[in-house]
């Protein structure tokens, strides 16, 4: 089955591959947040819920919550963000936050072209 890229209205992306997903924030969100200084990630094995906060991203003068586009279990976190949170600023699609086993998707996830329309 082909991989599928989906977007949420709260500026997260999820690359879906069957029952697994790789999840991050969009370049648009990264630009809004400015220089990212710290990423607080969930523990591997923890439950995430579609539409609920699963991570926090800090810039110098702001904290942004990251909302999960899926319901499921965290299977991996991107440890390189601990030392280099700026990877998200550099390439938000390469710098994933977590990988998860997916039980359900958030309602209303968009395709790339739908999302691009929304942000303009």
């Amino acid at each position: 089955m082909a991989k599928e890229l989906k977007f949420s209205a709260s500026h997260e992306w999820a690359e879906l591959d069957g029952k697994t997903a790789v999840i991050g924030v969009t370049d648009y969100a990264a630009e809004l947040m400015g220089d990212i200084v710290f990423v607080e990630l969930p523990a591997v094995g923890s439950r995430i819920k579609a539409g609920a906060t699963f991570a926090n991203i800090e810039s110098v003068k702001a904290v942004s919550e990251v909302f999960s586009p899926v319901t499921g279990i965290v299977t991996a976190v991107n440890l390189s963000l601990n030392d280099s949170p700026e990877l998200i600023n550099r390439d938000a699609f390469a710098a994933y936050l977590i990988k998860a086993d997916v039980e359900a998707l958030e309602d209303g996830l968009m395709t790339e072209s739908e999302y691009n329309k929304l942000k303009h």
Partner: peptide, 8 residues
């Protein structure tokens, strides 16, 4: 001052 560096 470089506040980003200070916080990272």
């Amino acid at each position: 001052p470089d506040e980003v560096k200070a916080a990272r």
